[in-house]
Amino acid sequence: MTTHLDTVVIGGGAMGSAAAWALASRGRAVTLLEQFSLGHRNGASHGATRNLNPGYADPDYVAMLAEAVRLWDELEADGGERLLARTGVVNHGTDPTLGEVRTALRGAGLRAEFLGAAEAAERWRGIRFDQRVLHMPDGGQLNPDAALPVLQRLATGRGADIRHGVKVLDLAVEDDGVRLTVDDGGRTEVVTARQAVVTAGAWTAKLLGTAVALPRLTVTQEQPAHFAIADEGALWPGFNHVPGEGAEFADWYSPVYGMQTPGEGVKAGWHGVGPVVDPDRRSFTPEPAQMAALQRYARTWLPGVDADSLTDISCTYTTTVDENFILDRIGPLVIGAGFSGHGFKFTPVVGRILADLATGAGPAPAIFSASRRRGAI
């Protein structure tokens, strides 16, 4: 049996759901194929909190941030669900770009102000600060567990066909589009389409194989944790902390990010340093040395939590060498990949860009080109 489609989206995580929503909103015929059920925990688009961290100075990202804030508000209004808790975000430590970030955000109409360490500690006593702090009130926490159903429900309401439990086994580029072999609940089906939007997350390289040349994508299993709150009166913004020099930073794996997840505790984690994995063969268990170091971090820098009472979390990062996304069109394939652990905040904007690429409405910013030479950051 062969099914003929116009546009098929492969992967129904955040970016695929947003692409289906954006395409359906333009009246385009779109079918989304997702190998797992809605709300699964196998990829990167689950859980109740992701930081909307506005801490960017690059003009492309800053423009996307300003658009994202507006689009998240629209999605909340259209979907009738709260998707963003505006707790603000504080970035601190030795990041040398904080001054540039402040200037860029204020130029885009987003709020950003420096606070001294003592003032910041008085406002957010659950966090230890040792240097000035960049406070960004427009940031906060997004809720993936609420956002994905909203995106898919709105897409369906505008004509999209959302199919869960359908795994793409093979993808071939042909002269007139793409040909997919899919497993739909144990039944093999052939699907042809004029074009495919590939938003397969950790499965991108496995799916595309040699069909197209992409920048290297590294899939890691990240293991943040929720720490129990010890200070019930503390207020918790989202936070990002860049280490300094000296012995107390010797066992840091990377900068640390964190936020409060209501009902679960304060989430904290290393950024993009987990073990490299095959997404189909993950352990879902934390790497012991990294988890022990994260507990030491919490004891020193998060006085508002109990570092000995924690629940580990597991998710994937799919990371490019320079941590810039891949948003590009190659023949009949529109590709959204390599979101490198910082893409979720841009979800509706990525959906809009992928829809632009699929409809010929315009290119993505050049920084996201698949053919651009990339150097490590």
Rank of each mutant, 00 (worst) to 15 (best):
W124Q: 03
L110Y: 00
G157Q: 06
I353N: 05
E264R: 15
G336H: 03
A85M: 10
H342P: 01
Q195L: 10
P59E: 14
L98C: 02
A118S: 14
T210F: 09
E287I: 06
G93D: 07
I353A: 04
L71D: 10
V90P: 05
V277T: 13
H342V: 00
V190Y: 10
Q295F: 01
I326P: 05
R163G: 05
D6L: 03
R281G: 05
P237N: 00
C315T: 12
W124N: 02
P255V: 09
P262Y: 05
G116Y: 02
H92K: 02
P243S: 09
A77D: 06
E189T: 14
I313E: 14
G246I: 09
V350M: 13
V190S: 13
A19I: 04
S25I: 04
P348W: 00
A155P: 10
G341S: 09
A205V: 12
K267V: 10
A364H: 03
S37N: 12
E119G: 12
G351M: 07
I353T: 11
P303H: 12
D170M: 07
N91G: 14
R373C: 05
E74T: 07
R123W: 03
R373G: 13
G12F: 03
I313C: 03
D251Y: 07
D231M: 08
E100P: 00
G186W: 08
V30P: 01
K167G: 09
G13C: 04
G272S: 15
R187C: 10
T156A: 15
P149I: 09
H4G: 01
D308W: 02
P137L: 08
I127R: 11
M291Q: 15
L23K: 02
D312F: 14
T347P: 03
